[in-house]
Amino acid sequence: MKSDKLIIGGHEFNSRFILGSGKFSLELMNAVVNHAEVEMITVALRRANIGGENNILDYIPKGVTLIPNTSGARDHKEAVRIARLAREVGCGNFVKVEVIADSKYLMPNNYETVKATEILAKEGFIVMPYMYPDLYTARDLVSAGASAVMPLGAPIGTNKGLLTRDFISMLIEEIDLPIIVDAGIGKPSQACEAMELGASAIMANTAVATAQDVNLMASAFALAIKAGRSAYLAGLGRVLDRHAEASSPLTGFLED
C-alpha cells in the first residue's frame, strides 16, 4: 500500500488518532501515547500550570505534536487571546479552536468559531476548529483559512457515538480539508465507523480516560481507527455503498 499520511497545515502524520488529555492522570500519558502510537495530543491551555508543578505541558512526550485548545473561551475574542497566550508560552502554531458559551450541553458556537478561525489563520496559526457539523459553517471555515475541520459526533463527553453521521458524511464529501471527528466517540467500533465513512482522523478523550485499562483502550482505538481507514481505502463492498449497482442492468430494455 502506498504511504497514507494525514496532512494538516503542511505537517505529515502517520497516526490518525488524536488524544485529548484533560481527563486522565498525567503519569499515564507516556504509556498511553506509546500503546496507541499517538502523534498528536490536545491540551487545554487553562490547565497548563505554567512554571508550576504538575504542568501538563511537561508531560507531553517528545516527538508528539502539541495542539493547545481554547477551551474556556466564550466568544471569538477569548479564543484568540487564549491561542496567542499558548503561542507565547511555546505551544507552537497549532491550535484547536473551541468556543463554547453553554455550560450545560457544551455545544460549540459555530459563528464565533468561524470568526476566531479567520483571525488566527491570518496570524499564521494552523487552525483546527471544533464545530457542530453544518455544511455552510464548514465552507466558511475553509474560506477563513482552517487547516482541518473537527465536527462533533455527539455532545462532548456523552460517548454516544456518531449521532451526526449523515451530516459528517456531507462534510467528508464536500470539504477538501481533513475532517476529524471530535467528541462523542465512545467506543472503538464508533471510531472505526467514522473512519469507514472517510473521516481523516478521530479525536477521543473521555472514552479512553474512563476505561478501566486506559492503555488497552487507547490501543483498541488505534487499531479500530487503522481498520476503519483501511476499509475506506479498500472501498466498501458495493452492497454497502449508497450508490449500489443492480446486478443486471436496469436499462437493458432499451432497443436502440
Binding site: 486522565f24 492522570s25 498525567l26 487545554a44 491551555l45 487553562r46 490547565r47 497548563a48 500550570n49 508550576g52 508543578e53 504538575n54 474556556g72 473561551a73 477569548e78 487571546r81 487564549i82 497566550l85
Partner: peptide, 16 residues
C-alpha cells in the same frame, strides 16, 4: 488524590 487515581488540577481557567 493520587492514591485514589485522581489527578489534582491546580489551574483550570485562564483570566481573560
Amino acid at each position: 488524590l493520587r492514591k485514589k487515581g485522581m489527578q489534582p488540577i491546580f489551574t483550570d481557567s485562564s483570566y481573560l
